[in-house]
Design a binder for these strands. Structure first.
Lengths: 350, 350
DNA sequence: CTGTTAGCGCATTCAG
DNA sequence: CTGAATGCGCTAACAG
């Protein structure tokens, strides 16, 4: 009970009366065949002694860790769920995913996390665009570690080639269309600039949407930081016929807008329509329910892990030029992950 | 660019013209002094060659990984934030925290995660009570790996001695008092049995609260799974004078209750008062604002990591009986982390 | 099939 | 203060 004294393959070997190589073979190398008898003996001995393979030793020896690293800005909301799904996919592929939060957007912490990951000799890295600085990202690529970016729209071509991005732009664009179709003559985007590239995508999509629905639409773009929510809604109050449409940065901001409107007794969705993004729990359970865009976590995770694994193979197998060619067709550009609209009472009467 | 060829201390050593031992000393062992000159040479060489210590090799050699493991039921909401804070505290203490989600409460996944962690030879483990099965937990303890439980009220004494628990019971109890003081004559707990021990704590506290406020209070306990929220609120509708009080399992459930009530045009907080737990983003931004209990993440994380580190020391230093004695005073029972009430419009008119 | 051997990259005595 | 030697636990050829 005091000194459980690590049991190693050596112990198992002599307990089973075979060599350590044999133990290694039967225990953690499916490829090499052994006689039924030895297999049984070894497995039995291992079981009895409570043997547990030492990951470090194995990794050191085979020069591959089967560990992947993930760096996200935080572990709340979208990030947490994303991390969870990525972890599952990684595990399914036989890899371990080490999750790191860069604590907001602190470049200091980011550097440290990266260093830790690299020192662990992770086989590959998945990073959220928002969590990474240009410098460090460059250094990863240089270090030779395969990298896949998530939501990294604003990255240089050579890096972004491994990006898996959510289709926020299209979602925003369609939000505008939805609101316009719903009779809104004035449509406003309430964003969150501190989310940088993520916010930028929304803005791009919003403007595209405005263009799409043509003239006759009055529009505006604001930032949640720059407005006082209640005052903002209050100002709208006078001009709610025809209805005004609000495209919110996400469901959280949508909820704030919604709350302020409710407080003022504004009729939703008849006088004011709101659409969020994320389809969080709150979107389904607020009153009125919030129209929002659902994120396909599993899909995105699969894509990201899949892409990374393919990169791993390529960097390992040192492929021929011909193969490289073929592959580039598949991996040429970043992957776009489409969201799907979930309509609720904040935009339509049931 | 193709084969960055791992640079090792050997490379650094010859580049600096010293032995590998010296390199190891100056690079990762503050304790051993070296001449200013060698230090400079070594650091310079390391820098130039882009040396990065191999965690596995180091760990293998010194038989300590400086890695801690965390197993939580998921990475959403509370869990995600907790993980994030624990990670920070761990890093501050010079450790790396590997976060695992046991994917809901799947015992299968839990076993696998545990196995991975143990194979990595983590120095210690932090587990959320809800994420663990009895079997596996027992096996951890037996494996000799120090363990700290989070929210593990329902565990046997010998394991729970390393627990850091949130004071949900007290929070619920005080919620009842708050509602009673607010004039509620009927108070109902709307729980979530699937949250097992966590829900149980709330129930215990709730009942304690009922007892505390004495007679004259009509109370009831229900489960979110067993009611249809709107129907539930509807039933209350007739008997809202004096006001009814609702103690919700968490802010999410509180939001649902709130939404249903709003939809029905019930006057909150005059006819119906609601209090949640967690003080989530939604609690502050819903309308009306939700009275809730704030969770001291940093505090809990500090306590948990601190406790684990102390256990690490003890198991390493093989302390004398006398020391063990002294320590047990400090660590005798599980630590209780108190929440703090944040009152908003769902219980009081501003 | 199974055993022997040579590292993987680093920390750590123990001499010098 | 510095260097040579030993081993951590395991994998990967290579022989037998």
């Amino acid at each position: 009970m005091s000194k459980p004294k690590q049991v190693t393959i050596v112990d198992v070997a002599e307990a089973a009366g075979v060599s350590i190589a044999t133990v290694s073979n039967v225990l953690n190398r499916g490829g090499i065949r052994s006689s039924k008898e030895t297999i049984r003996k070894v497995e039995q001995a291992a079981e009895r002694l409570g043997y547990r393979r030492n990951t470090m030793a194995a990794g050191l020896s085979r020069k591959k860790t089967y560990e992947l690293g993930l760096i996200v800005p935080g572990l709340n909301g979208y990030y947490g769920l994303l991390a969870e799904h990525l972890q599952v996919e990684a595990h399914n592929a036989g890899y371990h995913l080490s999750v790191f939060s860069s604590g907001g957007f602190d470049p200091e912490i980011e550097r440290r996390n990266l260093e830790v990951l690299l020192q662990r000799r992770v086989d590959g890295l998945i990073c959220h665009g928002l969590a990474m600085g240009f410098e460090s990202t460059r250094s990863i690529v240089n270090s030779g570690t395969p990298l896949v970016l998530i939501n990294g729209w604003d990255w240089p071509e050579d890096i972004a080639i491994g990006a898996v991005n959510l289709g926020f732009a299209t979602a925003s664009e369609q939000s505008v269309k939805l609101l316009a179709d719903g009779g809104c003559k004035k449509i406003i985007y309430v964003g969150s600039k501190k989310a940088k590239a993520v916010d930028e995508q929304r803005r791009i999509g919003f403007l595209r949407g405005v263009e799409l629905v043509g003239t006759g639409i009055d529009y505006d773009l604001t930032d949640i930081k720059e407005i006082e929510v209640e005052a903002f809604i209050h100002n709208l109050h006078g001009s709610l016929t025809p209805p005004v449409g609000l495209v919110a940065f996400d469901d959280h901001i949508a909820l704030r807008l919604l709350s302020a409107a409710m407080k003022m007794g504004i009729d939703i969705p008849n006088d004011l329509k709101i659409v969020g993004i994320n389809n969080d729990y709150i979107a389904q359970h607020s009153y009125p329910g919030l129209t929002s865009w659902d994120i396909p976590y599993t899909y995105q995770a699969k894509k990201a892990i899949g892409k990374l694994l393919r990169k791993l193979q390529n960097s390992a197998e040192q492929k021929l030029a011909a193969d490289q060619e073929k592959e580039s067709l598949d991996e040429a550009r970043e992957i776009d992950v489409p969201l799907t609209l979930i309509e609720r009472q904040s935009t339509k009467t049931l």
